[in-house]
Amino acid sequence: MKYNIQLVGVGGQGVLLASTVLGNAAVVEGLEVAMSEVHGMAQRGGSVQCSVRMGREILSPLIPMGAADLLLGFEPVETCRSLSMINKDSQIVTNTTPVVPISVSAGQDKYPAVDEVLSAIREANPNLIAMDATALAVKAGKAIAANSVLIGAISAVKGFPMSKDRMLESLLEVVPAKARDINVRAFELGYQEAKGAGL
């Protein structure tokens, strides 16, 4: 078994932290793990990508194009940008809250309507679970828990190789104790939202 997850988003959104939660869970599960992450300059508000691979006979930290089983996007445009990482059978989970790049604010670029972005993704691959993770996080108690919403959501995806409990346990290891309840709620909201989407 090999399961490849591509995580994409914007520097500062916690993409790195989410990939660590995934990796740690896989290690506890007794799987082989190889991951690759971005540090340094690209973290300053730029597009970031992390890859997480787990299973047997895993060596490469990078995923070939088209070979990601799951694409987890923290930002809709970034999800759309990374569609070449997946194939027609892959699953997609994306946050729908945009992070508007400075190129748009300064008037050099245009940010497309989120609905258009989502339909473009859906047209390429209908296995899309899109959610306003930020709104769900606010509902759970704090916008910053959007990360936990998304981690909850992927735990409900068809074919995902680890249990909900394993993921929650791994998440709680990296969140501060005082934010535990908020993150548990956020995780659960994300999980239910994805279950409801029925993919």
Partner: peptide, 15 residues
Amino acid sequence: EKKPLPLPSIKLPSR
């Protein structure tokens, strides 16, 4: 590997 999805024609802002 399986064939990668083509990139959609929608124009995305650079980041």
